[in-house]
Simulated assay, not measured.
Amino acid sequence: MRRTKEDAAETARQILQAAESLFLEKGYEKVSLEEIAVAVGVTRGAIHWHFKNKQGLLLAIRDRGKEPYRKLAAELSNNTAVSVLTKINDIVSELFERLENDPRQRGLIRCMMRLDISLTESDGICGATFRRELHQTFIQIFSAVEEEVRLTAPWHAESAASVFSATIVGLLSDWALEHSTVRLSPDGQALVKMILSGLISETCCQKNSRPED
């Protein structure tokens, strides 16, 4: 029987889910494609078809982290400036809390960081592309906010996106490498909320949150 696109997508989802679980449980380096294939009940060839290799699986897991922001960017026309910033805060807050409650994620993030460096050094594109795409998504989001309300000086869409991206990446890197005592939750959550709340004036917030008569 011929497989449908939905069947293929479901198989890819199951492979990715099994890979992430095994990476967290055993560590990325200690997991083989054979183990992942057995866990899902597919052949190793199926993994190669969907993700090429183990690095492809790690890249897919990493890229999945951008999805909530891409989704928000696609829905900008349905939200006010205040609700957009609130949703960004909620997305980051949920991520930080999930990571803080699962220290195994440190190892996985470190692997992603090493992969970024390796890819950037090898071809100068792939590693930077992930960060650039995320940064461009933030520019799109903050540009929509700026169209509705004036960002607090000296911020504009691109500078706000740059600082926000650097903050998120910096917090995640320090947490993964255990370079500081700062916790993603609640410390990182408080910092992100402070940055977002400082981008638009309190007057604009009150105007946008005022109920209709």
Rank of each mutant, 00 (worst) to 15 (best):
L59Q: 10
A157F: 00
E121W: 09
R110H: 04
K54Y: 01
E75A: 14
E20T: 15
A144L: 03
L76E: 02
A8W: 05
A157C: 09
I139L: 11
E20G: 01
T167N: 14
S159F: 08
L119I: 02
T129F: 13
S197R: 11
R98K: 12
N89I: 09
E100W: 03
L72T: 12
P154R: 15
Q189Y: 01
I36M: 02
G198I: 02
E67R: 14
T86H: 08
E29Y: 02
E29R: 09
K26V: 00
L59P: 00
S180G: 05
S32M: 07
I200R: 00
V169Y: 12
R70E: 11
I117E: 15
N78D: 14
V92E: 07
R3Y: 06
E25R: 15
S197C: 06
D116W: 09
D116N: 15
A81N: 04
L119R: 11
S93A: 13
I91A: 01
C205N: 02
V82K: 01
I61A: 05
S77R: 15
E147S: 12
E67F: 12
L196I: 01
L115E: 05
R64G: 15
G41V: 07
E10Y: 04
P186V: 05
V92M: 09
E148F: 03
L72P: 13
K5D: 12
P68G: 09
I117R: 08
E75S: 10
R98Y: 10
R106D: 10
E202A: 08
I200A: 05
R106H: 08
Q136I: 08
P186R: 10
L58H: 03
N78Y: 05
E67A: 12
D7M: 15
F164Y: 06
K26P: 01
M112L: 02
W155V: 01
E146W: 02
Q189W: 02
S118D: 06
E20K: 14
D63C: 09
R64N: 14
D213R: 14
R131G: 07
Q105W: 06
G41H: 04
I117V: 12
R110P: 11
N78R: 14
L22D: 04
H179Q: 15
L22V: 13
L119A: 04
N89P: 03
E6S: 11
L191C: 06
L33T: 12
T11P: 06
K71T: 14
A18K: 02
Q17A: 13
E20A: 11
T152F: 11
E6P: 10
K207M: 13
Q105D: 06
G124Q: 06
E6Q: 12
L95Y: 03
E97A: 13
H135K: 15
E29W: 03
R44H: 04
D90K: 07
S162Q: 10
N89Y: 14
I125N: 02
L184C: 06
L24F: 06
